[in-house]
Amino acid sequence: MSANPQHTPYHPRWYRASMPIFWWMRRWIHARFILRELTSIFVAGYALVYLLQLRALGLGPEAYARFLDLLRSPLSISLHGVSLVFVIYHSITWFNLAPRALALRIGDRRVPDKVIAGLNFVAWISISAALAWVTLKG
């Protein structure tokens, strides 16, 4: 774009705004979107921790005990605390968006979005309760 405006009646000179690099910091809804996308780091991060725990399990009782000690460190506890916030945010946003992808129908009637999202939350809570119960019992 030239510095001096050049305008002719049949060839208008358009103004084009460009997106700043950190466009998502300008608006809360966009920042929230980036936060939602960044939950994936914590999802994969915990999957990695879980994998390392399984590896320690495979290496024998001493290695496993050492790993459990590691999990007890203040650093580990705080990282898990932060991660928990993000993975729960992932779950909530994921289930709320599920109706966008699923158009279920029973007979001639579309299943309402709220029902689809609701069923997801019910499944989430049931699975969590079941896993917690199995652990408590074991």
Partner: peptide, 26 residues
Amino acid sequence: CTLVGECSVVCPKDVDPAAAIQRYKV
């Protein structure tokens, strides 16, 4: 599309373009 979802929020006619795109992906 990365499903920001704002298209459906601002739509004055409740078209829900985000849903159209997601279902097309499926």
